[in-house]
Simulated assay, not measured.
Amino acid sequence: MFLAALAVIATGIAACGSGGGEDLSAWDHDPIVPGYSMADVNIGDPFQAVLDIHGEPEQKLKDGGYLYAYYARTREGGRIDDPASWRMVVTLYDNGNGYLDAEDEVGAIEVSTPYYGTTSGGVGIGSSPGDVEGEFGPCESISETQGPEGENIQLYYYDQKGVEFLISPPDGAITVLVTAYGGLRPVEEEEGTDDAQGGLFGVYSSAPIVPGQTAAGINVGDEFRTVKEKYGGPDSTGSTTEGLVFATYTGGYGTWKMNVYMEDMDKNDSLGDFDIVVSISVRHPYEGKTPMGVGIGSPSADAMKEFGSPERQTSLMHQGEELTIMEYNAKGIVFAFNSASGAIVEIDVNRPLTQ
């Protein structure tokens, strides 16, 4: 269920305008200048400068305190965080109003194949790890993850030099990211004023997590009308490629805090009162714990102490954050944790899968 949840996290807001249909012959040959610019976009530019050159993005997203503008889709049906799905993604710092507008500041520019501009040393899309280290020296940090089709991908971080490379061993660099020297500035996601009282979760903020059964006061097997009685109407709804329908709750600010997935009982791809809950996905500020005290923010090692080795473990990149997914499907629980810190950021309680 976690992969379905990621699809919901990353569902962008469709935007009007050219959507990347402009002539690409100019910007896709612009030099890559680590720490400064790429694709005719400069670090520190207002978003208006991006609009003047590239027009309106095809999709927009707010996630983790940053704003994202997506240009020139190259793969239909791909996840929004899949580098192979977009030619350019611009990351921006919010000016404080919670949505993307002309005054927001460019923090990073990301391009993927095909892109023809290179660094002063000739490094760009298609370059090998040896080419990259030949120009930039031994990498400050290299990590490995899996691409959308299970392929191994290496992440070469040169934060202090303002550039990063996503490298697929057979193909070389498939994505280049330019930031200011030192990388993206950390930002804190704006939180609602009622967060101290549990925010969205209210009286259910500490409701227990029982694998395969319940989280946040919602039970696997509940009808959606029961969810609405506790949480009201969702902020958004939709359906998944797995034939489920979902309700997304944000608590009125920022990104999602809870997703509830349901079996579409009348098979109309629309959420109805009698659809049946099969999965509950929760994030901060939910404070509920498993029987042995594992919750959001707990070390991943604590989950392994309680549940043992996962049945399946995978890694993926989501908006620049490497996540590791530990699946305990037979027990009805899945954990996602930040691969760098080891802290759990999402817990999914699912209907247990039987062999």
Score class of each variant (00 low, 15 high):
E346H: 11
S85H: 02
W86F: 09
M304D: 10
E311M: 11
T113Q: 13
E321W: 05
P83A: 12
I167E: 01
A216G: 00
P234I: 02
D131R: 03
T175M: 14
S309H: 12
G172D: 05
P234S: 04
Y116V: 01
P169S: 13
S239E: 07
V163L: 02
I325T: 04
L244A: 06
F337G: 00
F307M: 14
D101G: 06
H284S: 11
K305G: 11
G221I: 05
I333W: 01
A196S: 15
D273V: 11
L353C: 02
D171K: 13
Y286F: 14
A301R: 09
I209H: 00
D104M: 05
M265T: 14
G243V: 09
Y93A: 14
E322S: 09
D23S: 15
P234G: 06
T240D: 04
I280W: 00
D52T: 07
A340Y: 02
P291T: 09
D194K: 13
G124S: 10
G233M: 10
V227I: 13
F47V: 02
T118V: 15
G243E: 06
G20R: 04
S339G: 13
G107K: 00
H54T: 12
G44D: 08
A84I: 07
V111K: 03
E133C: 06
P169Q: 14
Y253I: 15
G130R: 10
N152I: 14
L155C: 11
L51S: 05
Y93L: 15
P148Q: 11
G251C: 07
R73F: 05
A343R: 14
S281G: 09
F201D: 01
F2G: 00
G137L: 08
G12E: 02
I167W: 00
T118D: 09
Q48E: 15
F201L: 08
E263S: 11
Y231Q: 03
S339D: 07
L271V: 13
V282I: 12
W27I: 03
E190S: 07
R79L: 08
E144C: 05
C139W: 06
I32M: 02
E103S: 14
S141Q: 13
R312N: 15
A72Y: 15
G320E: 08
K161L: 15
G137V: 07
S141L: 15
F201V: 06
L100V: 10
E135W: 03
W86S: 06
M265H: 02
D101K: 02
G233C: 03
G252Y: 04
S206Y: 12
T314M: 04
S120Q: 13
Q355S: 13
S339L: 08
G44C: 10
G217F: 00
F337E: 02
V176T: 09
E22H: 05
D273L: 12
D63P: 01
V294L: 03
G221W: 07
L3K: 02
G17V: 06
I344W: 01
N259A: 06
I32V: 13
H318E: 08
G238T: 04
R73I: 08
D28V: 06
G134V: 11
G130A: 15
L92G: 09
G65H: 05
E229V: 08
E229T: 14
